[in-house]
Design a protein around this nucleic acid. Structure first.
Lengths: 266, 266
DNA sequence: CGGGCGTTTGAATCAAATCAATTGGAGTGG
DNA sequence: CCACTCCAATTGATTTGATTCAAACGCCCG
């Protein structure tokens, strides 16, 4: 069983936590800076929305649905805290988690075109969402370019993200897909100023598998293999909490899983 | 080599085609109506964009790239004719077709958030795209709510479509995925007032496979199996042209490929 | 006519799904 | 506090659908 932690990787792992706070290496600190900028952008966006639109706040608990597929579209939602999943359902009853939403993300865009929401938005944790009437948002945007800008950025980000998901599902083997999922989750937390070394998956293996296009057993095996390679670690009690010693090592694992040796090709 | 057309499947196929053609009644005509409405909406949108923004026209030939991943974002593009693919590329050099674009579709949204285009937009056929400076679009939207509406609808549609793609890739076996791809293509043509019984795929098997997350051989086999079940037919010369006798039968095939018998479940 | 691609098809292999059994916590109630 | 149930998760054995490797075909074009 190939020991994947090469000396380089191991030292990277060991220093990662320290580096993040002490911010020693060039690449590392640039990533950290970028995350901080992103975090500031999210905070600024929330402040702008809050000040300009004075949204109604709504508290949600795990399992609550903010909107449902087929319902008439009327509102957009901005997450202030918590965690949501968006669940698409097809004509024949298949259900599929198509996106995860964190603080600062918008929900409901899928309903604009057809006038009906295309998916369910389900809270996976207690949290607070801001409720915005779409027509009021539009009205407010008319004379506030900054507001329109953040709205478009949110939609654009969603488009780009959905495509990354598609790419991951289409081109990565199971283990790498799970690794990429964890990497993305950690990244999302980092951009929001939260610690990334210890993340609590509020999803069952079945839900993760559904999101990633694989069975729950495959998710479980993939996690076990990642743990065996020390790319992740489980906390003593329970296996819902995942410790990620080094996000970069996870990212590297994803990259190398397709190109064993990046042969000099064009 | 197991003959895949069991008596049950064969009769189902046979009756599906008959039913669909016989069913000039309710379902069929409603779908046709809907397509016509969609076609009108596209035409209206193009007229609006044309009149309000007086876009610069640009003619493209197969293989030309309208924009590239990493390039600074500045313009949006609206397709007036032709066919485009959007190709994402990852850090490690994987390439992935993430979307197909037809007349009336917008391109470039992915660049708004980050300020850089996230993918390549490649023409697959000669065509005409309208070139719009994003800042001019925004300026024009300020006092023209209708323009803002069509812009948002385009983004919304893209989000919804991307999620449908993800769902298809995650939850359908290879044959159904190819069937769903053809169904979607035919549907897109129908919405644009074009004939759907005879479609010309301007993609190689390798490209289709890349888009659908499978190998070119699997695409080829899937097409052969669909042809054997008479869900599609190849024209005498060449196998780039696909004849779809009945789009509804294709859709039915997709639906039944997961739930053999919709057991009375909940 | 012959080379070069794109496609098809077959056979072997492999990764992931399926089937099945077991473990491990969280929660409940005696 | 322990026994009990229930559900999530893990792990193993087997099957299966898709990939890989390989060969042959058909078509377009110089």
């Amino acid at each position: 069983m190939l020991m994947h932690t090469t000396p380089a990787a191991a030292s990277a792992t060991a220093t990662a936590a320290a580096a993040a706070s002490a911010m020693q290496g060039a690449g590392r600190s640039r990533a950290a800076e970028e995350n901080q900028r992103a975090g500031q952008a999210i905070a600024d966006m929330l402040k702008l929305v809050h000040d300009q639109l004075m949204p109604q706040r709504r508290l949600v608990r795990a399992g609550e649905r903010i909107y449902q597929a087929g319902e008439a579209f009327s509102h957009l939602y901005v997450m202030n805290s918590g965690l949501f999943k968006l669940v698409n359902l097809s004509a024949d009853g298949r259900e599929q988690v198509v996106a995860l939403k964190f603080r600062g993300d918008w929900m409901g865009f899928d309903g604009i075109a057809s006038g009906l929401y295309a998916c369910d938005a389900v809270a996976m944790d207690t949290g607070e969402v801001w409720v915005l009437r779409y027509d009021e948002v539009l009205a407010a945007c008319a004379n506030r370019p900054a507001l329109l800008r953040v709205l478009h950025e949110a939609m654009s980000r969603e488009i780009a993200r959905d495509r990354d998901s598609l790419m991951s599902v289409c081109s990565l083997p199971a283990d790498a897909r799970v690794a990429d999922f964890l990497r993305y989750w950690a990244d999302s937390l980092a951009k929001r100023g939260l610690r990334t070394d210890q993340i609590t998956l509020r999803m069952t293996r079945a839900e993760i598998g559904n999101y990633l296009g694989m069975t729950l057993e495959t998710v479980s095996r993939a996690l076990s293999r990642l743990a065996r390679q020390e790319l992740i670690r489980f906390t003593e009690k329970g296996r819902r909490d995942v410790h990620i010693p080094d996000v970069d090592a996870l990212a590297a694992f994803v990259q190398h899983s397709l190109a064993p040796t990046p042969t000099v090709l064009q």
